[in-house]
């Protein structure tokens, strides 16, 4: 910052031109490298060591042992892997679908729009841990209303907690997550919607396009860049997001809601086995990396064809 306060460099001052972007970047970059990248590297090295807090003599490099155990014998890991995929896909798809719906509803003028907007965006401001508790309460068969209402409607044969049902338990955290995440997509997509020039729609309707055709050929292409970046970020965040599950089910019953981040948390802070936990984290990191690479590749191809 200080460097860029100096008088503008004379034309052709190549060194200062090269350095200029780094002046703006360096404060953020230094912080990220010190507080995130260094710990990340240290964290990854744990995966190749025996780091167990309660065993003081457990330190030492053990190569790929953790990964071997993980990939060949650990059934809970594979279960958590499948659950992570289901949890992430269901949450992202529902959040995105409902978020887009809300954005489309808000993308026109009506009386009281400001108030409605403030109300529907509220869940985003609620601390996740608190929303987990509230939803767990709502699903509780003794003190919560939802099981009783479902029973009264004849959907449930008796009021019971879906959080305790191995077949349905995952839906609890997913519903809470959708509730929490709709505003993120609604806000970002609404912003992108408002940036579409009106002339595009006018031209389309002059050409006799139906509402659906307008959506398909005008709205979606304009939204595509925003959709790509938000879906990418949300997928990464949600697959790493353990708070709701830890609060609502703690991975149970019988690991049916155990996802990789909650398994990592349990392994590290309850089992105190940081080495093994880090190995699981590395697998998750690898999978997300591949996912991101594929998405970027697709985007590049998409750009070069249009």
């Amino acid at each position: 910052m200080a460097a860029s306060d100096k008088p503008a460099p004379p034309r052709g001052g190549r060194l200062s031109l090269l350095l200029e972007p780094w002046c703006y970047l360096s404060p953020a970059l230094v912080l990220i490298v010190l507080v995130m990248v260094l710990p990340l590297i240290v964290g990854i090295t744990y995966a190749f060591q025996d780091v167990q807090i309660l065993k003081p003599f457990s330190k030492g490099w053990i190569g790929l042992d953790h990964f071997e155990k993980l990939l060949t014998t650990d059934k809970v890991f594979y279960r958590a892997l499948r659950n992570t995929a289901w949890w992430t896909v269901a949450s992202v798809v529902l959040q995105f679908g409902f978020g887009l719906g809300l954005a489309l509803l808000l993308n026109r003028d009506f009386a009281g729009k400001r108030l409605v907007q403030a109300l529907v965006f509220l869940p985003w401001a609620v601390p996740t841990f608190l929303s987990g508790l509230t939803w767990a309460w709502l699903f509780n068969p003794v003190i919560g209303p939802l099981p009783h209402w479902l029973f009264a409607l004849g959907i449930m044969s008796e009021p019971y907690s879906i959080l305790g049902d191995p077949d349905l338990a995952m839906w609890g955290p997913i519903i809470a997550n959708v509730w929490f995440g709709i505003p993120f997509f609604a806000i970002t997509l609404l912003a992108a919607l408002q940036a579409i020039p009106d002339e595009m729609y006018e031209a389309a309707s002059i050409d006799g396009a139906t509402a659906f055709q307008q959506f398909r050929h005008v709205t979606l292409p304009y939204l595509a860049p925003m959709i790509a970046i938000t879906v990418l970020l949300r997928t990464i965040w949600i697959s790493n997001f353990a708070d709701l599950i830890v609060v609502m089910t703690n991975g149970g019953p019988a690991n049916t809601t155990q996802i990789l981040p909650s398994l990592i948390f349990t392994t590290a802070y309850k089992g105190l086995d940081f080495g093994y936990a880090s190995a699981i984290a590395c697998v998750l990191l690898g999978l997300l990396f591949i996912y991101t690479a594929i998405l970027f590749h697709m985007r590049k191809n998409l750009r070069s064809t249009t």
Partner: peptide, 16 residues
Amino acid sequence: LMLLTQMFPIVMLIAP
């Protein structure tokens, strides 16, 4: 690099 920092579970960064 910035995207990468979002991919590693936060839980594992706490100890380092």
